[in-house]
Structures are given as C-alpha cells and as structure tokens.
Design a protein around this nucleic acid. Structure first.
Lengths: 216, 216
DNA sequence: TAATGTGAATCGTTTCACAGCG
DNA sequence: CGCTGTGAAACGATTCACATTA
C-alpha cells in the first residue's frame, strides 16, 4: 500500500480545487488564457493564499509573476485528480427529485454515466419517459453487481433510505450520494456524501436567528 | 450589540446539534425516554465526546450517570436555537428540482412556509398544479418585498443563478439556498448555503480514486 | 515588479482525560 | 459506578510573511 501523497490533501482543499477546475472550464469557454490566484479567489469567494496552497498540493504549475495558464492549470488539476475517470452511476427513487437527477446533463459531461434508475413503484417505472433502463427496487443488488455500478444516488423517502443503501452495498457499490435526511450505516469501505436540504435550511435559519439576536 | 454566547458555537457543532435534534424527534416518536451521548453518536456517526461538547454549548441539561431525557434535550435544543421560528420561503425555478422542493413536506413541518414559486417560463406556471401562489420571475423582487419572504431557494440553471440571487437580494431576502453549481456574489449581510450535486459527485469520485490508487 | 510557492505562525475544532455528580 | 461536562492537549486547516523567480 504505497503512501499516495495526494491522499494528504485536506478535504476542504480538494473541494476548492474542484470548484477551481469548474471555473477554469468556464474561463476556457470565455477564451481567457491566464488567471491569477487572486482572481480565482475573488470569483469563488476564497482567499488567494488558500487557492495557491491548494494548487501547490498538486505540484508547481504557475508562472512566477504571471499567474496560471488556464488550459495548463485545468489539465494539471484534471490529471492529478484523474477527473477524466468514468463512473457508472444509478439513481434510486424516481420521484421528482430522482427524475431531476436522471436528467441532469452536467453529470454525464463530467464522467458520471447514469446507467440505471430504480423505483419501488412498478407502475411509476412505466410512466417515466427516458432512454435509460429502469428497474424495480428489488433488483438493485443484482443490477448493481451485473453492471458494475460504482456510485448510487439515494433519492427515496427517509423510511426507505437504509434499506436502499443496504441493497446498493450488497451489490458492491463503492460510493453513495444520499439525499435522504437520515444517517446511513455503512459497510466497510463504502464512501458517502450527504446532501441534506432540510438540514441546510435549518442551519441557515439558525444562523439568521443568531444574526438577528446579536443585532438587537 | 450584546455578544451572544451562542454565536460562538462552531459551525460543525451547530450542524451536528441539528442532526441530534432531528434524531430526538425520531426517538420521541419511538417512545424512547432517555438516551446517552454514546448512543446518539453511534447512530449519527460521531464521537460521543463531540456530541457532549456540542450539547454543552447550550448549557447543562443531562443527568450525570443517566444520559439525557429525550424530551427535555429536544426542548433544550429547540429553545436555545429557536427552532420554532417560522420563515417565509420561496422557490425560484420550477423545473423538476424546484417542484420537488415545493412539495417537500418536511420543510413545512420544520417552520419553512413556502409562500411563493417563481419561474421565467410563464407557460410553465400554468401547468403546475399546486395550491401555492406562482409568479413570473420578473416579479421576484416585488413579491419578496411585499410578502416579507426571508429565505429563497435557487433552483434555476447556472446561467440564471446570479440574476436570480440579485432579484432576491433586491427584495430584501435574508438567506439563500443555492442549488446551482456557481458561486453567488452576495450583498452585505445575506447568508448562503450551497447545495452542489455535481460538486459532491466529483468529490466522491475523487475520494474513490485516491482509495483505489492507495490500495493498488 | 508581480505573482507563485511554502515553511512558520495562528486559529479553530476535535479529542483526551478526568473531575463532578446522581 | 456510569455518564455528563469541561479545561487542556492534540490535531488539522488557514493565514501570514517572505524568499523565489520570470
């Protein structure tokens, strides 16, 4: 198990680097040829220092005195983080949220190939018009295994979230994006990122309350 | 501007406290009368120490030797963080994601009263069946001001996100939940929480890549 | 000169370890 | 004795400050 230096990138840095990468795509489209850490920071809302340190985790790439070449930096980040990697993905729960995700083109553009959708309501499967293959929920484990799906998006009601996760994990899923507002019990080395709308709303509301109370 | 001790709660602690609060609601429904920090931690995936410190930011409430009373702790958190506060909310962008949010009952149950929906496509407004009031996007500023809406959810395409935010802020919005994958430039004291599906997917994928590379 | 890259200092959060209490 | 509550230590990330280089 060779120590990989990149494993030592702090998670917040990694997250910022991905934002930088997406901004670079934008700048490239706008035909910008170079950009400085302070420009990147200004747009993304981070300190220039921070951006520079983040980038430096991946080795030297900038021009002393002249900022970064957009294309070069983009390739540098993509190469180091292997952003060209393709990941087979599935979505479980095809309500409004689930179908929104099925149809989210940016995923495909960034290497996430949605190869299956699942729902426990078999009637619903027939009403959704999509070119993707749809399956009943009880076929999750089998399908994930058969197709070699790596990432599963959970968009089912809270009550069904753990069972859904178990089915995905039994099929050998590697990572989960969980939109349900419950904590999932994970098997061994499965990774998860939680996206919790209600939690974010409550956090925002609480922060507003603090602000209101401290001004009063 | 009296210093409010609660302003000093670290953001991660605040976020955990809100998770604890929601778990307590669940435990209350299950008629559990008491719970320890280690039980809470186990379920939510945090260290018991951390949970105890989080709770202690709000003052003493537990029973030495006997854990926390579910109901009492719940009231304690809710009281301190003023979780009974109601917030008028609106959703901009009524595609699949936007309409999913309009219909997300958990929001209402937790004090977020969705009082308006907006979309730039006027024809679309007529096809959506809901009891909520819907408006064209150019009426955002006026409606936010008139109704005293505090929180705005942005569920529009990336291209329209900044303009949407500006309209919300011009109407006096206090907080924004941003589902678009772009950084929003904020006015003065407006607060924002970003929910970035593509970003989370890319982060997850990168973490998986690191794991794969370090095992090899 | 302008902006990168980076050790060192600082800051904030988590973890530790144990005193305090029912 | 078990579990809370909390100072103190440890840890990790950010910010600082400046040497470095085109």
């Amino acid at each position: 198990m060779p120590k990989n230096k990149k494993n030592d990138i702090p998670l917040p840095s990694l997250s910022r680097l991905l934002s930088v990468y997406r901004l670079l795509e934008q700048l490239e489209r706008d035909n910008e040829s170079s950009v400085s850490s302070s420009q990147l920071g200004k747009i993304l809302g981070y300190k220039a220092d921070s951006i520079r340190k983040d980038i430096s985790y991946l080795g030297e790439v900038g021009n002393f005195g002249g900022g970064y070449e957009v294309q070069k930096l983009k390739t540098h980040i993509s190469g180091n983080l292997e952003l060209d990697k393709k990941r087979k993905t599935c979505v479980v729960g095809l309500g409004r949220l689930g179908t929104a995700i099925l149809n989210y083109d940016d995923l495909l553009r960034n290497g996430f190939i949605v190869v299956a959708g699942f729902d426990s309501n078999i009637n619903r499967l027939e009403t959704i018009k999509t070119s993707l293959e749809l399956f009943p929920a009880y076929e999750i484990t089998e399908t994930v295994r058969k197709k070699g799906i790596e990432i599963g998006v959970i968009a089912v009601p809270a009550m069904a979230a753990q069972e859904t996760a178990d089915r995905l994990m039994n099929g050998g899923i590697k990572g989960i994006i969980n939109f349900s507002p419950v904590a999932i019990k994970l098997k061994n080395s499965v990774m998860i990122r939680n996206i919790d709308l209600l939690g974010e709303c409550m956090l925002l509301s609480t922060l507003l309350t603090f602000e209101e109370n401290s001004v009063k």
